[in-house]
Nucleic acid binder design. Structure first.
Lengths: 260, 260
DNA sequence: AAGTGGTCTAGACCACGGC
DNA sequence: CCGTGGTCTAGACCACTTC
């Protein structure tokens, strides 16, 4: 297996010129990352399954024609990613699939994971300037122009939640937002706008359903509901969206794992 | 600075014999870990503050008389711990103090961090055998003997929550539990019983205050409250305690960060 | 130009698990 | 006994920032 080298410190290795790289003709990718990617792909493609032994450091080194430290570096990265377990005197094994905790997923993804069909009804979609509390949560100056989107969200045709989402108009045009009755907001950000979501801060409390909420969610007025406020971030300190959701507490459970 | 070597591959280095180790007379601690600990201590003691530059790889290597790779390894570990930021062509800098998210802290610790004085009133403390739902949550056989502790919890003399906690009788005697009106449950586990808490799974929903709860929490009957069920784990798969808390939603906010 | 972290080499010895 | 990961050496070149 040939790699595209980052440097050419040794003389005998014929690594420059028209070499066959692992990922097309990419250069400047460190050797250890190329090896890392190659093995990662073999794991994720299902070729290697949980518990299977990976090639040892020495085998990897010989296979790709790199030094032991470089092969080691690649395997170390896999271990840090949690894809692999390394056990002295035994070898490197494919790790069992991780259960991810506290993962940021959209309403659509949550429903899908429970096998429910999702759809949304847009209750309101307006441009507003006078939501200063929201502006401050989005780290924007008071009086900023915001798009406000209110949706009633269904799982298998039962109402689950009312969600109000705000974003800066520069991030999202109003007519883009109009498609959100059938599209996921996360999908819009990640796929169409190419904005990589990083994390969200969420605050949960309990409140009572007001008449309008009760009507939409088909629950008695005054019934306890879960209120979740969420600030969504991409990489960097600038939030991209703020949302406030009212969830039927009989349908929605909020689960997290905390570590000591 | 002399270190206690793990191996003695080079000949000239006088590392064996009566060397001065970083941490007393410890042996078998890898060089990179000793260096790592030494620098860590300098950061945590306050000698090095956020933004301060750390010795470069080359300086560390010379200082401790190790190779570049070993010094590098030590600094890499610091980076993985989040104590340090490494920037190419600039140097290694002490990272700003991390804000920890989703950290498992006790009610007492939460209150203390908000500057409130805590105390608890024990409402019930009984030995029970017929809580099969709880037993199953604790991964114990049905009919197991459990201790049930119900406490009303105050912050600055205002009632904040009602908490019911169950644990196996083998883990905690009843008279030990009697001290929990003034002690922290976490403190009891961690300090007296030397059980290291690892994580907790929590489930949150909203419910309405029943008459008894309303009276204790001094809120109207039927008011929305936050219900948090928590399963507490030490290392290993066996849970150590289960608790169910009812929190005044006007006093308690539940905050987490989720990552994509 | 000097210094930094990032990558890489071609070896080495150690402790330990499985055969 | 052999192979494994873990540790370690004594160098090297690169891209980059700072002065």
């Amino acid at each position: 297996m040939k790699l595209t080298p980052l440097i050419n410190s040794s003389e005998g290795l014929e690594r420059s010129g028209p070499s066959i790289s692992l990922i097309g003709m990419e250069r400047k990718i460190p050797l250890y990352k190329q090896i890392h990617s190659a093995i990662k792909q073999r794991i994720q493609s299902g070729e290697l399954k949980a518990g299977d032994p990976i090639d040892s450091e020495r085998v990897v080194a010989k296979h790709y024609g790199v030094s032991l430290m470089t092969a080691r570096h690649a395997l170390k990265e896999l271990e840090l990613e949690g894809l692999v377990l390394r056990r002295p005197a035994v070898g490197t094994l494919v790790a069992p699939p991780r259960i991810q905790f506290n993962k940021l997923i959209s309403f659509s993804e949550q429903m899908a994971s429970r096998g429910l069909a999702v759809h949304s009804k847009i209750l309101a979609l307006v441009v507003t300037k006078k939501e200063d509390e929201v502006s401050s949560r989005l780290s924007l100056p008071c009086g900023s122009t915001l798009i406000k989107l209110e949706r009633l969200r269904f799982g298998d045709n039962d109402p689950f939640a009312i969600e109000v989402t705000y974003f800066a108009q520069k991030d999202l045009s109003k007519n883009r937002a109009e498609t959100l009755n059938r599209r996921s907001l996360f999908g819009l950000f990640e796929n169409e706008l190419q904005r990589k979501l990083a994390y969200a801060d969420e605050e949960v409390d309990a409140t009572a359903a007001d008449p309008r909420t009760a009507k939409f969610l088909k629950i008695p007025q005054g019934a306890p509901i879960l209120r979740i406020r969420q600030i969504l971030y991409t990489a960097g300190p600038q939030p991209i969206a703020f949302s406030r959701g009212l969830y039927r507490s009989d349908r929605h459970s909020f689960v997290i794992r905390r570590f000591r």
